[in-house]
Design a binder for these strands. Structure first.
Length: 282
DNA sequence: AGCCAGGCCCTCC
DNA sequence: GGAGGGCCTGGC
């Protein structure tokens, strides 16, 4: 099915910049499991084309639109965050890269798994969790699995997750799943909550600190002002922003500084700086 | 072999 | 309140 839209979209950068962990590339097609469907997608002249299974594409289309954040006015956002030549360069280089609107629970677990890890390993962890605890979706001989529900992971407990190689993150995933399963937090409700409210709720969960909470808010809870500070952003800000270096801002102090500096779309600035700095390597 | 990875948490000062 | 060390595991 074709989704037509105006405006730019760099699907490759968007799906490969490290905000989502289950997309696989095969030629110009990308495939993953989202909304309990095996979804294939590719860029074309008029927009993006996608296939879904088992559900009808017509039913999935609004969800895919939402996932891809096609409603974001990129030019408006660029104009808003373009405060200096550093961010300007990154915008020029990765024009069309978007933040995704992922499913909150999968996003939350993915970023608990990200602690002291790397993208390759996180991808393996998330895929292994799905294979072991998710529901099989078969498409033309290909089998992928849905990401398991909160209840399934709450019931599973810590040890099976350790056996999958999550390491010390297993107890955090398990404990957080149990809290949410028992009604300790409504993740979707956080989409309507303020940034501060959502942050406070998330960091109360085991395994979620300021950085991970900001990732979850940015990539799944519609908080475009979220600004996760990881080692790459830490490097980018210290190397590229004299104000940060001169003030000797700690990692902790960088987030509020950047949110004030870049404004309400600071999360977009974050993703462009992150991507640029990470490709540059250490 | 030893260090580090897209942090978090706990202890101690 | 913030600095320092431990934590699973895999990759270099």
């Amino acid at each position: 099915m074709q989704i037509e839209f105006e405006g730019t979209y760099d699907l490759t950068s968007t799906l490969e910049c490290g905000q989502a962990f289950r997309w696989r590339r095969d030629g110009d097609w990308y495939s993953s499991v989202i909304f309990n469907n095996n979804v294939k997608i590719r860029r074309n002249r008029k927009g993006v084309e996608f296939c879904s299974s088992p559900d009808d594409e017509l039913a999935l289309e609004p969800l895919v639109r939402g996932y891809l954040r096609l409603e974001d006015d990129l030019d408006g956002i660029y104009a808003n965050i373009n405060r200096d030549e550093r961010i300007g360069e990154s915008i020029k280089r990765f024009t069309g890269m978007r933040i995704l609107r992922q499913e909150p629970w999968e996003c939350l677990v993915s970023f608990i798994c990200s602690a002291n890890s790397n993208i390759g390993r996180i991808s393996t962890n998330v895929e292994d969790i799905s294979t072991k605890f998710g529901r099989a979706i078969r498409v033309n001989g290909d089998v992928r699995h849905t990401f398991p529900t909160v209840d399934v992971l709450a019931e599973a407990g810590e040890q099976p997750l350790r056996d999958l190689g999550l390491g010390f993150r297993a107890k955090y995933v398990s404990a957080t799943a149990r809290i949410i399963a028992e009604g300790g937090l409504d993740l979707f409700a956080l989409r309507e909550a303020s940034y501060d409210e959502a942050l406070e709720s998330l960091v109360a969960l085991p395994g979620i600190g300021d950085k991970v909470a900001n990732c979850i808010m940015l990539f799944s809870l519609d908080k475009l002002e979220a600004f996760p500070v990881d080692v790459w952003i830490d490097r980018a800000l210290r190397e590229w922003y004299p104000a940060v270096a001169e003030k000797k801002l700690t990692k902790k102090a960088m987030r509020p500084w950047a949110q004030d500096y870049f404004g309400r779309y600071a999360g977009y600035a974050n993703q462009y700086l992150f991507h640029g700095r990470r490709l540059q390597g250490k």
